[in-house]
Design a protein around this nucleic acid. Sequence first.
DNA 1: ATGGTCGGGGTCCGA
Length: 263
Amino acid sequence: MRIATWNVNSIRQRLDYTVGWLRANQPDVVCLQELKCTDDAFPRLEIEGAGYNVAVHGQKGFNGVAILSRHPLEDVMTGLPGDDADEQSRYLEATISTDGGSVRIASIYLPNGNPIASPKFDYKLAWMDRLTARARMLLELEVPVVLAGDYNIIPMPIDARFPENWLADALFQPESRGRFRALAALGYTDALRACSDDEKIYSFWDYQAGAFQKNNGIRIDHLMLSPQAADRLKATWIDRDERARDKPSDHVPVVVELEIPIR
DNA sequence: ATGGTCGGGGTCCGA
């Protein structure tokens, strides 16, 4: 089973590239982030036309997450538990079932958190605590779980081309990185690091100052696997070519292949 | 030394 995560930075601006990527790569599941549109404005027919079922949790102008699946989407859960007052659309969870097995998958758009001396950073940390609580619950299911998305976390210095540039950024604070590490300590595996020897591998390059041309990138899009998913991990990669296109997203797809046969 | 780019929705905010 092939599972991808991609922050598309507006699904309406990136619809052609998204459909083209689905056709070329034939993933079983894709988690999308930063849709920047409401459920009603999501281009559902075009995605369905490419052969995918759709679960959407949209929001006008900002945020918004979706799960696309070639297989039925079951038990869809919208929003991250733990704060009924949180109105930002950043979390969506569903079960993908095939005859070869089922996977619980979350599409995550973790808050950016900048600037660090602001309520936005507090919101980020509180959101991460809620995510950790949810991740702990999911482990109790003892099934393959994939928590995929834009975590807005640079886990380690090797995950940035120029780590010194990020010292004052919410993406690289000890509090943010510590919470990501806590997720790993629960028993979740960072799929890309578990299955790639390439240290200089990034998933985001800023639009400004020719960051992509200089390979001034960071790795902030992650697929975290429960033990039952990690046991089935076959391969991971990042589709860097998507960033070289005209008018691209600033993020590229990150992909995992799990040994869950599709029958 | 400065500012550099996108997207959405409206002439600024979020990233």
